[in-house]
Amino acid sequence: DLSALRVEEVQNVINAMQKILECPICLELIKEPVSTKCDHIFCKFCMLKLLNQKKGPSQCPLCKNDITKRSLQESTRFSQLVEELLKIICAFQLDTGLEYANSYNFAKKENNSPEHLKDEVSIIQSMGYRNRAKRLLQSEPENPSLQETSLSVQLSNLGTVRTLRTKQRIQPQRTSVYIELGSDSSEDTVNKATYCSVGDQELLQITPQGTRDEISLDSAKKAACEFSETDVTNTEHHQPSNNDLNTTEKRAAERHPEKYQGSSVSNLHVEPCGTNTHASSLQHENSSLLLTKDRMNVEKAEF
């Protein structure tokens, strides 16, 4: 173990290094160091905050020279020094078990990766560091076993998940096959086929009936047209017969005018059967003409 005197000496050296690497504005270890034209180094955030307070150039807090945003430059070497100082402080805390008085939040800088452990060898070769390295080497064999167990647990979990997924996939297939086998029997399929065939026959029977009705309507229309044509021909046949009657009536009127007047009046009210309204109107006109002729003949006879 380190003596108290040596611990104090190391602590004083760390404090001196820390004062050199402090920012003059925030009085902390410089984060993202930036250098000016006057070779003074500050935190990048502190300098941008200072420049944004005034429009135009501002003055350096140490030498009062003008500073602009374009004049600022990043210093990589200074950032490396800060990183190495942080590593020294971490090693000091691990070796002594004491917390550094002016320690900052170094938890963000710590890294437990194997590459980081290899890099620590180049920091300080001390008894405390050696003991700590031995402890780490002793704890390393235990870690692979834990990793193997965790991997086995994960693989077993994956296997159970896969088996569950396969079961879920197989179950719908089985149910679907069961439904297909038990849903419709052979008799049901035959009945469905016969039902479809009967429906098709009914459709075939319905369509000819409609065509037959249309044919019957067409035949009825044709018969009505033929009947009207026969009526017209009958009226045409009746007209010459009426003319013959008129000639006979004229002759009778010349011989017996008194008797014919009474008979002509009675004939006005008689309509021949089986004739249309057109034929009756023609008869009325003929009878009126005959009456006028008879009157003329009677007057001539009187004179």
Rank of each mutant, 00 (worst) to 15 (best):
D1E: 05
L2F: 03
L2S: 15
S3Y: 04
S3T: 13
A4S: 10
L5I: 08
L5V: 07
R6S: 05
V7L: 06
V7D: 01
V7F: 02
E8V: 06
E8A: 09
E9D: 03
E9K: 02
Q11L: 14
N12K: 08
I14V: 04
N15S: 06
N15I: 13
A16V: 01
A16S: 02
M17T: 00
M17V: 02
Q18H: 08
Q18K: 03
K19R: 02
L21S: 04
L21I: 02
L21V: 13
E22G: 01
P24T: 00
P24H: 00
I25V: 05
C26G: 00
C26S: 00
C26F: 00
L27P: 01
E28D: 09
L29F: 10
L29V: 02
I30V: 14
K31T: 12
K31E: 08
K31R: 13
K31M: 07
E32Q: 04
S35Y: 12
T36R: 00
K37M: 10
K37R: 08
D39E: 02
D39N: 04
D39H: 09
I41R: 03
C43Y: 00
F45V: 12
F45S: 15
C46Y: 01
C46R: 00
L48V: 14
L48Q: 14
L50V: 14
L50I: 08
L51F: 05
N52S: 06
K55E: 06
K55R: 03
G56R: 04
S58T: 00
S58A: 13
P61L: 00
P61T: 02
L62S: 05
N65I: 05
D66E: 11
D66G: 04
D66H: 14
I67L: 03
R70W: 07
R70T: 04
R70K: 04
L72R: 03
E74K: 02
E74G: 05
S75N: 15
T76S: 10
T76P: 15
F78C: 13
S79N: 02
S79I: 07
Q80E: 12
L81V: 06
V82D: 00
V82I: 06
V82F: 03
E83V: 05
E84A: 05
L85I: 11
L86S: 13
L86F: 05
K87R: 11
I89S: 05
C90R: 07
A91D: 02
Q93P: 00
L94R: 12
D95N: 00
T96K: 01
L98F: 05
S103N: 03
Y104H: 01
N105K: 12
F106L: 12
F106V: 03
F106C: 14
K108Q: 02
K108N: 05
K109R: 13
N111T: 07
P114L: 08
P114R: 13
H116Y: 14
D119N: 10
E120D: 09
V121G: 14
S122A: 15
I123F: 15
I123L: 12
I124F: 07
I124V: 09
Q125R: 07
M127L: 09
Y129C: 03
Y129H: 13
R130K: 11
R132S: 12
A133T: 06
A133G: 05
K134N: 15
R135I: 03
R135G: 14
L136F: 12
L136R: 07
S139I: 11
P141H: 09
P141S: 06
E142K: 11
N143H: 13
P144R: 13
P144S: 12
S145A: 04
S145Y: 02
L146M: 10
L146F: 02
Q147H: 06
Q147K: 15
Q147R: 12
S150I: 04
S150R: 13
L151R: 09
S152C: 08
V153I: 03
L155F: 12
S156A: 11
S156C: 04
N157Y: 02
N157K: 12
L158V: 06
L158H: 13
G159R: 01
T160S: 14
V161G: 10
R162K: 13
R162S: 15
T163N: 09
T163S: 13
L164M: 09
R165K: 06
T166A: 10
R169G: 13
Q173K: 04
R174M: 12
L181F: 11
G182R: 04
S183Y: 01
S186Y: 03
E187V: 08
D188G: 13
T189I: 09
V190A: 10
V190D: 15
V190F: 05
Y195C: 09
S197I: 11
S197G: 12
G199A: 09
Q201H: 03
Q201L: 12
L203V: 15
L203S: 14
T207A: 10
P208H: 11
Q209R: 13
G210R: 03
T211I: 05
R212K: 07
R212T: 11
D213Y: 08
I215T: 11
S216R: 08
S216N: 06
D218E: 09
D218V: 02
D218Y: 07
S219Y: 12
A220E: 11
K221E: 07
K222Q: 07
E229D: 06
E229K: 09
T230K: 15
V232I: 09
T233I: 14
N234Y: 11
N234H: 03
T235P: 09
S241R: 10
N243S: 07
D244G: 07
D244E: 01
D244N: 07
L245M: 12
L245F: 11
L245S: 12
N246I: 03
N246S: 02
T247A: 06
T247I: 11
T247N: 04
E249G: 14
A252V: 06
R255S: 14
H256Y: 14
P257R: 10
P257L: 09
K259E: 11
Y260S: 15
Q261P: 10
Q261H: 09
G262A: 12
G262D: 13
S264F: 00
S264T: 12
V265A: 05
V265F: 11
S266A: 10
L268F: 06
H269D: 05
V270M: 11
P272T: 15
C273F: 03
C273Y: 15
G274S: 08
T277N: 04
H278Y: 06
H278N: 09
A279V: 07
S280I: 08
Q283K: 04
H284Q: 03
E285D: 10
E285G: 02
L290S: 11
T292I: 14
K293Q: 04
D294N: 13
D294Y: 07
N297K: 05
V298I: 14
V298A: 00
E299K: 08
A301P: 08
F303S: 14
